[in-house]
Every structure is written in C-alpha cells, then in structure tokens.
Amino acid sequence: MFLNPYYLQIGSFIAINALLGLGVYVTLSTGQLSLGSAGFMGIGAYTSAILTARYNYSIPVGVVFGALAAALSGVLIAIPSLRLRGVYLAIVTLGFGEILRVAFIRLENLTGGAIGFPGIPKLGGTILERLKASSAGARIFSSMNGNALESLLVFAILLCITLMSAAFFALQANSRVGRAFSSIEMDETAAESMGINVYYYKVLSFTQGAFVSGLAGALYGHVASYVSPADFTYHRAVEILVYAILGGAGQVMGPLVGASILTTLPEVLRFMSGYRHVLYGAIIVLSMIYRPQGLIDSETSDWLRKVFRRKRFIDGGVK
C-alpha cells in the first residue's frame, strides 16, 4: 500500500511544501514577514529547468544553482528592504513576486512564457536508468511496478532533503546564530545594543529563506516535469505562508506539521467534491482562532522533545 504512487506523490508534495514552509519560518525568525516565497520558488524552478533541459547539466547541478540564484535575488531584495517592517515588507515582497511572475511570462525565449516550460528532466530518472542497467537492479525492477519504484525514489530523495534542511534549521536555532535571530525578532534595538549586527543577520535569514524556497522550486520542477508562471502566483505565496503560520512559525516542527496537514487535507476531502475548499478554509479559520500561535508552539515542541528524550533514555537503559 505504501508503494501506491498516488500516496507517494502526495508525500513528495508534502516534502516540497514543508521546505517552502521552512523558508517562511527562517525569514520570520528575525521578524521579517515575506510573501516572496512563490517568486523565489519560480527563480529556482526556471533556473534548474533551463540548466538541465536546455544545457544538459545534471539535475543536482541544476537544483543547486536554482537555489543559489534564488538566494542571490534574496540578498538583492533584503538589502534595500532592511528598514521595512511587518506588513510593509510583506507588500514589497509580494510586489517583487508579481514582478517576477510577469517576467516569467514575458521572457518567453527563456521560460516558454505563459504556456510554460515542459520537458524538465524527471528527478531520479538517471538513477532509475542506471538501476535498470545493472543486473541486480534489473531483478528488483522486474519484481516491482516501475512506476511505484520511481515514485518511491523521488519521495525518498525529497524526504531526505527536507529532513536535512529541517535538521539544519533546528541546529542553527539552538546556537549563537539562532539566539541572534530570535533576539532581533524580539527587540531589534536591544539586540543591536548587545553587539549584534542586526543588518547582517536579517539579510542572512532572508537569504536562507530565499535559498530553501528556490531549492523547493527547483525540486518541484523536476517532480512535475512542467512549470508555468501560474505555479508562482501570490496565491501560492499566501498558501506557503499559511503552512508555516498554521503549523506554528516559531518552531522548525511547525511548518513541517502545517505543510503535512494542509497538503493532505484537500486529498482527504476529495469525497466532498465542490465543498472541499469551503471545509479547507473553515479548518484553517478554526485552527487559527483556537491556536493563533500555530499547532506547534514552544510548549508542544518542548514536550515532544521531552517524550523523545525519555524514550531514548529507556532505550539506553535496556542496553
């Protein structure tokens, strides 16, 4: 059942959305509210698509450069926006996303314009072919549905990248850099007077957010094998913001939980056909009313950590 390609594909989209949610989380961890995620996602997606489909670079190279291109544009946006706060920054980044979307439509030679960019190499394609070519791989292959194997491979790769990114942010949060981030989020003036270079850390957190958004976008292109400007609208940016906020933007766990729930929900609600969007919206509204801090706040994450610790301790004791 777990090899059902349909479930595996939902799993892959959860991983990508969780990555996007992490982008919001890290930007917000210095108090910066950005709605640029869809734009950064687009930069990552088109950069990797162009590099791999047009210039025959391998997918890992395309993905890394996609994320780097998004990070670079993140720096360029972050520096002039440093003095903006709250909704003002949100509006500027929203405008930036819309400018990019129009650019994706206009730069037809590069992006394929409004029609979109088809034929992006599939993630795991090369590995799958090598596997087929080797004798051991061919045996596994013949015993399994090829479609399922491909979906499993894609899901495994995405899960790995997402968990590694989450681990990165969790380790960073509990360090000198993470403390600098939260001190800026809580009181910029006090942070600055404690010797923290507020500009540097704000640009850093914004850039990290742009990087993971670009990474997610690049991966998305290689999963869907087709992207178009319609994938990177402000509607998408708001959706990404909701993953983080509903899950709890103060903790690394938050966006992971938020993206998992909100990506699965429309599928679970499929039986309601026309009404599912209404229920989807209602669930978001109710959850924000009853848990404005998000499903995962610092108390839940401390509790989870404690439960996990205790279990590990018992495991150790048995040994």
């Binding site: 000198r176 403390r179 939260s182 001190s183 809580m186 009181d187 006090a190 404690m194």
Partner: peptide, 22 residues
C-alpha cells in the same frame, strides 16, 4: 528591553554575542 520569550540564561548569552565567534 529584555528578550522576554527567551530564558534568563539565553538573555545573558545574547550579551556574549560579540565575544564569541561561531
């Protein structure tokens, strides 16, 4: 102007930012 949602220990550790380098 404290960092109210940080622990006391973390508040003091923020003060050490410019004397540490990680």
């Amino acid at each position: 102007r404290l960092f109210n949602r940080m622990t006391l220990q973390e508040n003091v550790m923020v003060g050490m930012h410019c004397r540490t380098g990680s």
